[in-house]
């Protein structure tokens, strides 16, 4: 899968490239509007990550160009402005999602995968990981062909892990993914622990043991083997 990252901050661009390449994407980057415009005109991408404020142009114009060219690429906006009008405008222009800076890399990755899933529906009807198979359009989870009944939050949690396999997911990133703004309320980490415990137990009962490992002091990680 080919992703173009349009971001002018070198350090952030490097982190994004690194994280997404690790996740199995083929990534290219552009640091200016001109360069990004050239690339989207020349090449075909599956998804384009666009920062709204670029030194030589507006990121929204790139979205307009993509839509005018009837590109099949998914569009994910990242912006520091956070102005809610920008968000509304971006989504109305046809962007698939909008993420405000600063964001968790794991969250970005999960959103990116969701965009891809929606875009390439026929190609990837299900996610597979070791003995796990998930059909996101039916919210169906199978362990060794056996269906598992998960609560809404356990399911969200599992999908978040599946989007970021073998990466350490911080409790903060998980909390924000599940509860959004309410994540900074006290004891949200305890709830993660409870939901995770239940999820692990349900997977374990069907023989999927030790999938999610606790990384002491940092968070949790979905182990590939």
């Amino acid at each position: 899968m080919k992703v173009l990252i349009v971001e002018d901050e070198a350090a952030l661009r490097a982190s994004l490239l690194d994280y997404l390449r690790h996740g199995g994407y083929v990534c290219e980057s552009a640091e200016t509007y001109r360069l990004a415009h050239e690339k989207i005109k020349l090449y075909q991408y599956d998804c384009v990550l666009v920062d709204l404020t670029l030194p030589d142009g507006a990121g929204l114009d790139l979205v307009r160009t993509l839509k005018a060219d009837k590109s099949v690429a998914g569009v994910l906006i990242i912006s520091a402005r956070g102005a809610l009008d920008d968000k509304v405008q971006a989504l109305e222009l046809g962007a698939d999602d909008y993420l405000q800076k600063p964001f968790h890399l794991a969250e970005l990755n999960a959103r990116l995968r969701a965009v891809m899933r929606r875009r390439q529906f026929q190609g990837q009807p299900h996610l597979s990981f070791r003995d796990l198979t998930v059909f996101p359009d039916q919210a169906l989870v199978l362990v060794k062909e056996q269906p598992v009944t998960l609560t809404r939050k356990e399911y969200d949690l599992l999908l978040f892990f599946l989007a970021n396999p073998s990466r350490v997911l911080t409790k903060e990133a998980i909390a924000e993914h599940i509860w959004g703004d309410a994540a900074d309320m006290a004891d949200s980490f305890d709830f993660i622990y409870t939901h995770l415990k239940n999820l692990r137990k349900k997977l374990q009962e069907l023989g999927a043991d030790n999938y999610i490992r606790t990384i002491y002091g940092l968070g949790y990680k979905l182990e590939p083997a």
Binding site: E9, A11, L12, S15, L16, D18, Y19, H22, T53, A80, R81, G82, A83, Q100, K101, P102, F103, H104, L105, A106, R167, V168, T170, A173, L218, G219
Partner: peptide, 24 residues
């Protein structure tokens, strides 16, 4: 306000991303 928000959120985004990378 807009510039201050932008100028502050960008370094914060870099810090957060780098720290997450570090934790990996």
């Amino acid at each position: 306000t807009e510039n201050a928000a932008h100028e502050t959120q960008t370094p914060l985004a870099i810090m957060q991303a780098q720290l997450e990378q570090l934790m990996q």
